[in-house]
Design a protein around this nucleic acid. Structure first.
Lengths: 349, 349
DNA sequence: ATGAAAGCGCTAACAG
DNA sequence: CTGTTAGCGCTTTCAT
């Protein structure tokens, strides 16, 4: 590994000059001619700065800490991590990802990250919920991903939950459904609240009545199926908006039992917190796709902009179908989601 | 952050003494009395070493690079990463995880990891397959996870593929199945080969004839389902050993179409490369559980043992149901997998 | 416009 | 046994 010292020696200048040039701080301080030479030698030697040495001096590591509760348990996290990783990579950062199962080891992991001198933290949840940010990281730049902090103390990147509910329901309405059920979540997280609102709004706009009996709040496993089953029997809905794919599964199960065919007798739209389910197992499930990759990507951009104290607008966004709001939009910023049509939304004759 | 210098000052000794003590190299070199004092001050000041400074000196970072192709796309990776993370954490290491989509960015990511001075690499694949280890990391300690290198050049942690096939098939035989099908993979990876061998051996041991017509090699999507469907029609198997859960799904689909009930009319055993499927969607699917967590954990132990050049036996293994072979067993070491019985394996009347 | 020198926090020879 | 010294590679005053 070539060092600055070596470059300095071979070019016949001092280390400080090399440092100046290689950090692009040479404007008007080093003769263009010399600068040119330095750059050449650096190039020739295949110079790459030693991040450790640099960090030791600057106490900036260019390492980001990614804290997530459930990397292991859900497939979704990958998309976020991937996007974050890409952004980090593009911006010259590395990411250390730690997994905190609940709270037991959270402090330890954070302490470790801090010792390694991370410049800031990403804090990600599964499904947009209220997150309790550990005291220990509040002095650092922090950006939440798919999560919300109380009082919006921290910038957060989250999907446009209202829009998810609205779009999904609208799609069902367009397909001709008139008795649309919402298979929701029994937890009062922002995701649930926002999607339910979107659902109601879409119904209202279409002149359909919201009927509480057509919504279920599902938590566990056993009761869940019977709740959906009961909904089938009592209300006979012709369309279903499902909080996520796991919940959509219950609809599939019940439909099968009743001899109904998805995309023909009833229509279903799910949200892909577990898109992998939908794609592998239920190709006919129409899905509102969460922009996980983009959320990760954007979160890192936001975080780095905070760390380096430069305007967010200077970042390049990934090519994506999801529309991004302006980065300087008031928090909580939210990302528009994409609706992927599949055959499961039948036109009701 | 307290430094050694500060400790030295407050204790009235020199930095070197402090360094000696705090690195537990004081045995017979520093008066126990002094050492004691040093430790106390360190404790009092809440001293934590600065890994950067240390690394700069030792060129050991205590950072491990984890390279995986598909963190994003499959849920399985989580288990491995989690185990690896835990082991790393226990052994005082951090892990930087990078995702290489195919080969395009692999070299860049590796270069980045190298600049950050990782001490070694974990190289993980999805499903045990032959891995092409990039030239650039061959000078580092490398351990493969759920993968095999040509000629076993590198130590690798992989499941006992033969045993997976053997156990799964044996389970079906015990359930009374006589016409057992193998829904396999159309790729010649070690996982496929080993499991198929196990399948054949189990049949043979039970005095059942191996019949090529009862095996399918499945690749893509469309053809896959029809292949399984044909198998149903032509051979009418009463038991199915499926390469993974995605393939098990085809069996479910066909069974449903034929009006057969899993766990009653036919029996199914799958392998959980995607356990999440099985648990959430198919509670009745009997699963051979791959010890992902353990593989990750063990891989890191192996890697660190290489890095620090100390005997592997000095590591503490995680409490686990999966039996681990001796760490100094000849490579490739393989881990025994656990069979999880569920109702899908019916006793055939 | 350039270089000398100090120092980030730590480790490791080497003296004493 | 303990302290002195040098230096890892880089950034950053401060002289020149």
């Amino acid at each position: 590994m070539a060092t600055m010292k070596e470059i300095a020696r071979q070019t016949g200048v001092s280390v400080s000059t090399v440092s100046l040039v290689l950090n692009n701080r040479d404007e008007g301080r080093v003769k263009p001619h010399i600068a040119q030479q330095v750059r050449q030698t650096a190039e020739r030697l295949g110079y790459a700065p030693n991040p450790l040495a640099r960090s030791l001096r600057t106490s900036r590591t260019k390492i980001l800490g990614f804290i997530s509760e459930e990397i292991a348990t859900t497939p979704f996290a990958g998309g976020i991590i991937l996007g974050a990783q890409d952004a980090a990579s593009t911006l010259g950062y590395m990411m250390i990802t730690v997994n905190t199962d609940g709270v037991s080891n959270e402090d330890d992991e954070i302490a470790a990250l801090q010792r390694y001198g991370v410049d800031g933290f990403l804090y990600a949840k599964m499904s947009n919920r209220l997150a309790q940010i550990p005291q220990s990281i509040t002095d650092y730049p922090v950006v939440l991903v798919d999560a919300t902090s109380e009082g919006h103390r921290f910038p957060s990147i989250q999907p446009d939950e209202f829009r998810i509910g609205y779009d999904a329901t609208k799609r069902l309405i367009e397909a001709g459904c008139t008795k649309i059920a919402y298979i929701g979540c029994d937890d009062d997280m922002p995701a649930q609240i926002g999607r339910l609102q979107g659902y109601r709004q879409a119904l209202e706009n279409a002149g359909l009545r919201f009927d509480e009996r057509r919504t279920v709040a599902i938590g566990g496993n056993g009761p869940a199926l019977s709740a959906v089953s009961k909904l089938f029997d009592n209300e006979g809905p012709d369309g279903f908006f499902c909080f996520n794919d796991a919940r959509a599964w219950y609809v599939y199960e019940c439909a099968a039992r009743c001899g109904l065919t998805i995309g023909q007798d009833i229509s279903v739209v799910g949200v892909d917190n577990h898109r992998v389910f939908a794609e592998t197992l239920h190709p006919r499930l129409t899905t509102v796709e969460l922009p996980h990759y983009e959320m990760g990507y954007w979160a890192v951009c936001r975080l780095v902009s905070e760390i380096e104290d430069r305007p967010p607008s200077s970042f390049i966004m990934p090519a994506t179908t999801a529309q991004m709001p302006a980065l300087d939009a008031p928090a909580p910023a939210s990302i528009h989601c994409t609706l992927i049509n599949k055959e499961s939304v039948a036109r009701q004759a």
